[in-house]
Amino acid sequence: MTGGPLGKGENMNAVEFEHVKKQFPRMGYMALDDVNVQINEGEFVTILGSSGCGKTTFIKMINRLYKPDFGHIRLFGKDIQNSNPVLLRRKIGYVIQQVGLFPHMTVAENIATIPRILKWDKTKIENGIEEMLQLVSLDPKEFRDRYPAQLSGGQQQRVGLARALVANPPIMLLDEPFGAIDAINRENLQNEIKRIHAQSRKTYIFVTHDIREALKLGTKVIIMNKGHIIQYASPKEIINNPCDNFVIDLLKTLNIQNNYVIDGAGI
């Protein structure tokens, strides 16, 4: 690979899926069924869908944890099938729900995982840890030597974010990172990840089953159902022009939620 962060070709789409199909053994339907999508560099794309709709499969294909049965996936114009999966993954930030942190390592050691593998020198690693912890609003002095078990769920997720961001990857994959976090912390984390993305202008792909989260964070939203992409558009367009009944139903749940919140506030 030559040039740019991931070896940029002529095509400036950060991520491109072309006729991608995937079926798992013992599953009646396809996890991904002829998926075509192009994601521009710098976009914050949220992928929304109920469980089993293929959204996690989508993300795990980008860092080659899963292999497509058919079709091509390109990052910055290069077919990932031709790249070394380990080297590819080191250039992609990966955050997952809950368990991502290594319990036998401190916060600092967790964040230093990839820098150590990349053989950064000591000062660069130390600076990276410090900078990342500040970025995710954790006081380095207080948190760097703690173990994951000594952190709250929200703090763990912040460390997970810091660990994924430290090598400054051009693409970030986030698989329901805030799925198990209480509403208030979730709100804070959402605001922060939005801020971090806005500062970096890297490409973020964020899986969620929460429609409010998807519409709030995404510059674009992919709505998936049963292995198909139903709609891929900006949040505004999805609200104004839902393309089929599935999306309309999803938006209805949003209204119910909003009404409920208003009723709950006793207005």
Binding site: V86, R89, R90, Y94, V99, I114
Partner: peptide, 17 residues
């Protein structure tokens, strides 16, 4: 935890690592 091992792989560790 298998998820933890998958996370490690997904971050860019080799099987040996």
């Amino acid at each position: 935890d298998k998820n933890l091992l998958e996370a490690a792989t997904g971050m860019g560790m080799t099987n040996f690592q």
